[in-house]
Amino acid sequence: MLACRWALGNTVISAHRFFSRKVVFSGQTLRCLSSQTDGEVRIVQILKEKFPLASSLKVVDISGGCGAMFEIHIESSEFKGKRTVQQHQLVNQALKEEIQGMHGLRIFTDVPKS
């Protein structure tokens, strides 16, 4: 798990990984721009293999970096002609092993517009 540290005067602020999120402390806005978590990287790799025609793919750990809950946005022509529930079933099937260790998963699927 990645962590961010900021120095603010004599105070050092530590926070678990935030994905381009703002943190407000004493009226000042700080930003932590860290790389993807291991869980995000693993899920992206799996989905790229399962959906090689995906034109857009974004995976965000929304559990603060602990890997308990993820949000997935995927756009692929492989979803064409399938209802939303069928698209989500395909994503769930691709992540079958990873889902067992998760608390929750948000899935957003779409078909490219052109």
Rank of each mutant, 00 (worst) to 15 (best):
D61K: 08
V111A: 02
A94C: 08
G104S: 12
E75R: 10
I46T: 14
S76R: 05
I107P: 07
L30W: 01
S20M: 11
I74N: 05
F79A: 02
A68W: 01
K50S: 14
V24T: 15
E97A: 09
H16W: 11
V23Y: 06
H103F: 10
G64C: 03
V59D: 00
F108D: 05
S26A: 15
I107M: 00
G39H: 06
S26V: 11
V24P: 07
P112N: 06
C66S: 12
E40W: 04
F70G: 01
P52R: 00
L105T: 04
D38T: 14
E71G: 05
G27A: 06
M102Q: 03
S55E: 08
T29A: 09
D110I: 03
E49N: 15
L105M: 06
V44M: 11
H88E: 14
T109S: 12
A68I: 00
H16D: 15
Q45V: 03
L33C: 07
S20Q: 13
V23A: 14
H73S: 12
F70M: 02
S26G: 02
G65I: 12
I62M: 07
S56A: 10
K80A: 15
Q100N: 10
C66R: 10
I43P: 00
Q89S: 12
K82S: 09
D61R: 11
G104I: 06
V91L: 05
E40H: 06
M102W: 14
T37M: 08
L47R: 00
Q86S: 11
H73K: 10
A94H: 06
E49R: 15
I74E: 02
I62C: 01
Q28S: 10
S26K: 15
G27H: 08
I43Q: 00
R83S: 07
A68N: 10
G101W: 01
Q100V: 11
V41F: 13
V91F: 07
T109M: 03
L30N: 02
S26H: 13
V85F: 07
V59I: 12
S63Y: 13
N92K: 13
I43D: 01
R17V: 10
S63M: 09
I72R: 03
Q100I: 06
C66E: 11
T29V: 11
S63K: 07
V44Y: 01
T84W: 00
F25S: 09
R31P: 00
F25N: 04
S20C: 09
L95E: 03
D110W: 02
Q100F: 08
L57P: 03
S77F: 07
S34G: 14
R83E: 01
M102P: 04
K58S: 15
K82F: 08
V41Y: 09
V59N: 01
E40M: 08
S56L: 13
F51M: 02
E75I: 13
Q28N: 12
V23C: 04
R83F: 07
I72V: 15
F70R: 00
G27T: 09
E97W: 03
A54D: 01
P52A: 00
Q36N: 08
E49F: 07
R83G: 04
R21Q: 15
L33G: 09
I43T: 06
L30H: 05
H73Y: 12
V85T: 10
L53T: 11
K22M: 03
F79M: 02
S26D: 14
